[in-house]
């Protein structure tokens, strides 16, 4: 990217630069003030013992927060829970949405768009509305899950779904799943619709089976979409927060803490601002590494 084209006169360069910055100015203002500055502050404050009080003075403690972080059992537990959520939800979301999409993309357009719409509904409904109704469904006494489970004989007595460390995290993963497949399905339906039909027909003429056509031709062509879905689902699973905050508040006894929730808890319940930021930095690094790996993998594959 050159700063100027060879034939451009000095005056023109200046004119372009001024015009460019004037166009950029409004956006750059919001970007620098409300994104870059806090991002910088996040890293900066992570080296301080800092709380949210009005007259509190920040004390520089170097890597102290980071040292504490890796000995903090709750944080390590939160990291483990986050890893479980990501490892379970990313493959299931991808596989499920790929299957649904390949089932619906060549239906009559009415059905395709109706189904696509329905699977997208939990996303638009909003996390709070979705979560409160699930909370009711999981309820120990009035919830529909216990009622159904007992009437078909799956369970003998009521299960306190969200209050039992054995089930709580899985209950959250289930809700996260229903709110995560909407976007991948929309993307896959459009990607499958764009697969080069001449290649598919050529393969069919050569006697390839449906399964072969799918894996040998379509899979390769929708690879960029898969990659994109992998990345956004990973990031979304990492950021799982509203569900935890509204359903379990990380409980029972921190068994459903995720990193995102624990950051919130440290900063806004314990008022440990610097410590929370140190966690934020660790989360940033993990996500950056994962995105880079997924990106690299996707590039070598296709």
């Amino acid at each position: 990217m050159r700063a100027s084209r060879p034939g451009m006169s000095r005056a023109l360069v200046r004119r372009e630069t001024i015009a460019g910055y004037l166009f950029l100015l409004p956006s750059l203002f919001f970007f620098l003030v409300f994104v870059i500055y806090p991002m910088f502050m996040c890293i900066y404050t992570s080296f301080f013992d800092s709380n949210m009080g009005k007259d509190a003075v920040d004390m520089f403690i170097g890597l102290g927060n980071y040292k504490e972080l890796f000995q903090d059992k709750i944080f390590l537990g939160a990291l483990k829970n986050t890893a479980i959520i990501v490892l379970v939800s990313v493959p299931t979301v991808c596989a499920f949405s790929l299957w649904v999409s390949s089932a619906i993309y060549n239906m009559k357009p009415v059905f395709t768009s109706a189904f696509r719409c329905i699977f997208y509904l939990p996303v638009v409904t909003g996390s709070v509305a979705v979560t409160v109704v699930w909370k009711w469904m999981y309820n120990n006494y009035y919830g529909i899950f216990n009622y159904l489970g007992k009437s078909v004989g799956l369970i003998d007595s009521n299960i306190n779904w969200l209050g039992d460390p054995k089930y709580a995290l899985w209950c959250i993963i289930l809700i996260l799943f229903t709110t995560s497949v909407g976007q991948p399905i929309v993307l896959y339906v459009s990607a499958l619709g764009n697969v080069d039909q001449t290649l598919v027909e050529a393969a069919e003429v050569d006697g390839a089976t449906k399964t072969q056509v799918f894996w040998k031709i379509k899979w390769a062509q929708i690879m960029p979409t898969t990659l994109y879905i992998l990345i956004i689902t990973t990031i979304n699973s990492f950021q799982c927060f509203a569900l935890i905050q509204l359903l379990t508040s990380g409980g029972p006894s921190h068994s459903t803490d995720t990193v995102m929730y624990y950051i919130y808890y440290t900063a806004f319940k314990l008022y440990r601002y610097g410590y929370g930021n140190a966690m934020g930095v660790v989360l940033m690094v993990i996500i950056a590494i994962l995105s880079a790996i997924q990106y690299k993998l996707g590039q070598t594959d296709s």
Partner: peptide, 14 residues
């Protein structure tokens, strides 16, 4: 590429 939520804590102070 970074998670949006990590900037929220510093944003509060700002």
């Amino acid at each position: 590429a970074l998670p949006k939520q990590v900037i929220l804590i510093p944003l509060i102070r700002e």
